[in-house]
Design a protein around this nucleic acid. Structure first.
Length: 170
DNA sequence: GACGAAAGTGTGG
DNA sequence: CCACACTTTCGTC
């Protein structure tokens, strides 16, 4: 997906504006994508070359507070996009208190579904940190993360985040 | 215990 | 309908 682009469609009326910003987190870079001034995605990786927009103060401070431990939950609404089921999963995840974890099955039972379906929805969560899918772990240990490549590094980030919130995993 | 297979749910082709 | 997913459980060895 192209970033930082204003697209004009053939009807000349529809315009999509995406602004991608960079934040330097302790474990690496984070990119935040804003569309029409609204945060629509937060990714746990990225580089400056693809995120030239300045980060809004509001989010700069929120992230600063989160990484310094003063802020635990962002209190930001979950992504409006996604299927109804995904919304339910994300909502349930967003309600997990900081410092606690739930298994995929816990989430599944909470919303009357199955663990694998929950995992699938987690993988599609566009708002990392805001919707703390890193607090969802497998039953016998740390589950997966980032649904694809960089699994090693992504898992390291998941561990980092959990540890940051006071949870240690073997 | 460890390992493989199947279960069961939602999504995409 | 089929294959897949950030899983879990069950049956064997």
């Amino acid at each position: 997906m192209p970033l930082n682009r204003c697209s004009t469609f053939s009807d000349g009326l529809t315009i999509i504006m995406k602004q991608t910003c960079l934040y330097k987190a302790p474990f690496g870079n984070i990119t935040l994508v804003f569309e029409h001034g609204e945060l629509i995605a937060l990714n746990l990786h990225g580089d400056l070359a693809h995120a030239p927009y300045p980060l809004p103060d509001e989010w700069q401070q929120r992230l600063d507070n989160y990484f310094s431990g003063r802020l635990k939950n962002f209190g930001h609404p979950i992504s409006r996009q996604g299927t109804p089921f995904q919304q339910k999963v994300w909502q349930a995840i967003a309600e997990i208190p900081a410092g606690e974890v739930m298994s995929y099955q816990d989430i599944a039972r909470k919303i009357g579904s199955g663990p694998r379906a929950v995992g699938g929805a987690c993988g599609k969560n566009p708002l990392a940190l805001v919707v703390p899918c890193h607090r969802v772990v497998a039953k016998g240990g740390l589950g997966g993360f980032s649904s694809g490549k960089n699994t090693d590094e992504a898992l390291a980030v998941k561990r980092w985040l959990l540890h940051h919130e006071g949870i240690d995993f073997a």
